[in-house]
Design a protein around this nucleic acid. Structure first.
Length: 566
RNA sequence: CGGGGCGUAGCGCAGCUUGGUAGCGCGCCUGAUUUGGGAUCAGGAAGUCGCAGGUUCAAAUCCUGUCGCCCCGACCA
């Protein structure tokens, strides 16, 4: 492709609306343009990257026994009513009406439609198992679309659905997908991790998320370098060291005047102690009923764990007004001593012996607090988020913490949809059985953004080799110099003849402009044709991810390309 | 959904308080000189000031409404 003909409108300045790096770079490098909030056009360079992502996904899905199909994006309301999701999905779902005032959904996902499809045409165990997948636009009317392609309202998604005769079959399908996903992200050369995910409302069966590691990721993940353990911080178990009972002969409880000391940091500083010696008292409302959680001052409450423990439907932090009503004190002066509200303590609190906590009176705190002696709790539990350095629940090795972007999610659906939509078959004994399903998603457009988020520098994008829109860019330093252009053109044609994806930057621009653009759009290999190249009958080759430039002959260039993309 | 901010040329922004000829930088077009990391000079094109009402002799500017976009919040005492 000649750069003079390629549609890649690069921007020198960062558009004001772009917050995260991937969004900024994809806009600046001429990959995407916004059509509306959370809705983007994919320009030719982006389209090439997306095709490469999709191709890898397709090949691995096919290898794992999947069959690609296309499903409607416009889906009738009745299907969604059968599973109850017409209501459950709420405002997240785009809805529309036709001229007859019938309602439709723009598919946010395709369980309903595909289960109905399979139900209609598979009636025997002989037709199972079945693994079907689609790569299509999906729609979610996000409350707040943001981060460019990261959280859009229209996005490209690969979803695979498996149908099996029983749970054993589902396990096998799941395992195949689990492995296929590893293949996919390895082939994309992305740094990623699989984590155990919360299967949530769907039930106790397993679920894994594939996270592309990037500092800007929304999710925090802890992992163990020694064993294979990895989990979302919200899911990670905190296997607290066995509780050391509070010292019974400790110093007596004392109330201290602490004017103006509100936060954990204030109180810790006031008593010249670490925040880990402060007991943080959090007032929550569980289905409207007040409950208290105690955590070390340097820990965070894990709402999911707390909610699971309480078995309530709704758990929110109470506001300060409620604190005054129940404790007679405001935030910052709350404590567990003398309360008649149910108290749940984090395991770590149990091990403390001379802690500080609020006295339920503004501007007063206790010191030398001993859990068990000075107050009782209803239960000791793991209530906090995991942090770096916590022992691995499997092997005790200190856990590492990274941030990640969720690009893949697989889970076992079981019979939820097949039951609601009556997807059944006759088994060998002529008995009617419900199919057992799994579903397996990959955010295609999000993966492109995640790849940029992870692979970039100050100059622009550094595409992983398998995803790069083009492999090589040939830059004649001065397009007006015939000899340079001739050599550049001949190199370009040689590469084209070898089937290599190459751009010839034949634009009448200064060298600096071409270099800047090449770096910005992230083409892995740059071949510069200038006076030096002409003199030595060699070309200058620069790898996008390295600083240095190498002089080499065409033979060598072709070998290098062969090695890199072999 | 709550709070805040913004909408002026393709992009980034000023002008608005105090109403009176619509500006700057980058980009774009033409020409010349340049040509190894976003050139220089000269000339030029380009904006119904988001949209709709209102106030006024006069509105980018004041008022009302509306649409769009961005940020924050909806868990850390």
């Amino acid at each position: 492709m000649k750069a003079s003909e390629l549609f890649f409108p690069t921007l020198r300045e960062v558009p004001a609306e772009a917050e995260v790096v991937s969004h900024q770079l994809l806009l600046r490098a001429g990959f995407i343009r916004k059509a509306s909030g959370g809705v983007y056009s994919y320009l030719p360079l982006a389209q090439r990257v997306l095709k490469k992502i999709m191709q890898i996904v397709r090949e691995e899905m096919d290898r794992a026994g999947g069959q690609e199909l296309m499903l409607p994006i416009i889906q009738p309301r009745e299907l969604w009513e059968k599973t109850g999701r017409w209501d459950v999905y709420g405002d997240e779902m785009f809805r529309l009406q036709d001229r007859h005032k019938r309602y439709f959904a723009l598919g946010p996902t395709h369980e309903e439609i595909i289960t109905t499809l399979v139900n209609a045409d598979v009636h025997s165990y002989r037709g199972l198992p079945l693994m079907l997948y689609q790569i299509q636009n999906k729609y979610r009317d996000e409350i707040r679309p943001r981060f460019g392609l990261m959280r859009g309202r229209e996005f490209i998604m690969k979803d695979a659905y498996s149908f099996d005769v029983d749970y054993q079959g589902l396990d096998m399908s799941y395992q195949k997908m689990f492995e296929a996903y590893h293949q996919i992200f390895q082939r994309m050369e992305l740094k990623y991790r699989v984590v155990e995910a919360d299967s949530g409302a769907i039930g106790g069966s397993s679920s894994h998320e594939y996270m592309v590691l990037a500092d800007s990721g929304e999710a925090e993940v802890v992992y163990c370098e020694q064993c294979s353990y990895a989990a979302n911080v919200e899911k990670a178990e905190c296997s607290c060291q066995e509780a050391v009972p509070g010292q019974t002969d400790a110093l007596p409880l004392e109330k201290k005047h602490t004017p103006g000391q509100k936060t954990v940091e204030d109180v810790a500083a006031f008593f010249q102690r670490p925040t880990s010696q402060v007991i943080k008292t959090l007032l929550c409302l569980a289905d409207g009923q007040p409950v208290v959680a105690l955590l070390r001052g340097d820990r965070e409450l894990n709402v999911v764990k707390f909610q699971n423990l309480l078995g309530c439907l709704d758990l929110v932090m109470a506001d300060e007004k409620a604190a005054y009503e129940l404790f007679g004190a405001g935030f910052g002066s709350l404590g567990p001593i003398g309360l008649d509200i149910p108290i749940y303590g984090d395991l770590e609190i149990q091990a403390m012996s001379a802690a500080n906590c609020g006295a339920n009176q503004d501007d007063y705190h206790y010191i030398n607090v001993c859990p068990g002696r000075d107050f009782q709790v209803r239960q000791w539990n793991d209530l906090r988020n995991a942090v770096a350095g916590d022992p691995c629940p499997h092997c005790q090795n200190p856990l590492q913490l990274v941030r990640g972007i969720e690009v893949g999610h697989i889970f076992k659906l079981g019979d939820k949809y097949s039951r609601d939509l009556d997807a059944s078959f006759l088994d060998q004994n002529g008995q009617s059985q419900i199919m057992v399903m799994g579903c397996y998603g990959i955010g295609i457009s999000r993966t492109m953004a995640a790849a940029v988020e992870q692979n970039r520098d100050e100059q622009g994008i550094i595409w992983p080799l398998p995803l790069a829109p083009y492999q090589v860019i040939v830059i004649p330093v001065n397009s007006k110099k015939e000899d340079q252009m001739d050599l550049a053109r001949s190199i370009y044609e040689q590469l084209l003849a070898k089937g290599i994806e190459v751009i010839l930057d034949d634009r009448d621009e200064r060298a600096g402009v071409k270099f800047k653009d090449a770096d910005l759009i992230g083409i892995p290999l740059r071949i510069t044709v200038g006076p030096k190249a002409l003199q030595e009958n060699k070309v200058e080759v620069k790898k996008r991810w390295e600083k240095d430039i190498n002089m080499m002959g065409m033979e060598e260039v072709l070998n290098l390309i062969g090695e890199l993309w072999g």
